[in-house]
Amino acid sequence: MSSIENISSPPRGHSVAAESSDRAPILANAAYLIPAIVALLAFFILPTFVTIGLSFTDWRLGARSLSFVGLDNYRDLLASGAFNDTLWNTLKLNLFVIPTSFLTALLLALAIHSQTRLAAFWQTVFFLPVTSTLVAMAIVWQWVLHPQVGMAAWVLRQLGLNPINWLNDPDLVLYTIGFISMWQLVGYYMVLFLAGLLAIPRHLYEAAQMDGARSGLDRFVHVTWPMLGPTALFVLIITIIKSLQIFDVVRVLTKGGPNGASEIILHTLYQEGFIYFRTGIAAAIATLFFLVMLALTLYQMRVFDRRVHYS
């Protein structure tokens, strides 16, 4: 028990026993960790490395042999005009979806937060798409956007305008896809913002009023926005991740068309991997995608963590 005794007495049988009884719990603890480690390795770490490894081969799904091709897959991808278009499309889609959904969610949350009576109603209305299956909803959107029989076309005709072919116009299709994806997820971001708004102490607004903050803009700039910092950072990260993951709308509505105008990175990956079975190429795309995501996340954490105030 007494540590002084242990130190002063020479290491004999007593302390050897103590050492071995110290080691036993370490082994036992390690044993408890094995299931978690095995699961992590089997489902997360190993697949990542297998994918990275496959990206250096010419393996096709189901093939009995494969050969090492070095960086050929990457070279081919980056040299291909189609893949560069894909990257460009993905960038355009994300540059549209990320800021618009972030700002729309914030504005909706602010509007709903200032309501007293209908807040719960509007909250439910805007959250409803989050709970729906996008594949099923995409079919509804297909009907809504149909250039002849769709509701959007009907509305435009009533306004005396020509119907627009939302999903087949190469200049529009990406934004249509972006809008549908945003429609589905904006309710989710809005709820996150609402939670952040509710956490701002009411007396801060009262103090601001007493201090002469006359306009809503003053209160937003000096109280709401800084206090919302951690929430906004979180929503931004989620928005970016979700936006980069857009796939199902494209798959169901356009399959990358017309003429590759809505071809985005995840859809190309799917085509290569599961339609053409060029697993090596698909793995190379997945690896590139993974690296971009990793870099983005690390950068966000670094930059924003310093600027955001956590009370």
């Binding site: 007396h203 009262e206 109280v223």
Partner: peptide
């Protein structure tokens, strides 16, 4: 509660 602005 003093209501100081925590970020300022």
């Amino acid at each position: 509660s003093y209501a100081l602005y925590p970020h300022k």
